[in-house]
Amino acid sequence: MVCDDHKDLLMGYLDNELGEEQRRRFEEHLSGCPDCSRELEDFKKLKAITDEVGLAEPEDRIWQDYWSGIYNRIERGIGWIMFSVAAIALAIYAGFRVIEQLIEDPSIEITLKIGLLTLIAGLAILFVSILRERLYFWKRDRYKDVRR
């Protein structure tokens, strides 16, 4: 078991991250502490075998096409936003036109008018409710915010 006070120095020594003074101090400690010396040797072995593990380079075309993959996603994202906004705006406009015609059309019975208007109102309430629920959960999503 390594001395508690020397864990940080042990890692720094192993990774060559210590200043001259810290290094000298830790080497002094090592000469009189068999536990830390043993631990250091174990960590050296571990570091050596961990350093041998390398991640495979992908084919060159991955790097060549990397930016175009990102560019396409950005472009498509903008496309989807424009499409969604336009679709919602058109749906709202069409909804208003339908309601307007329903009310103004004298050939449609009043009962049918009430029924159709209630149906449209119900759909609108359901849509707003689902949208509000989605927004509620989105706001509380812990992975939504990017930590800066």
Binding site: I49, T50, E52, V53, G54, L55, A56, E57
Partner: peptide, 16 residues
């Protein structure tokens, strides 16, 4: 994923 696999590298990658 791991370059030049052998038993040791496999074990280390698995442990990571």
């Amino acid at each position: 994923v791991v370059v030049g696999k052998n038993e040791v590298k496999n074990e280390v990658a698995e442990a990571i």
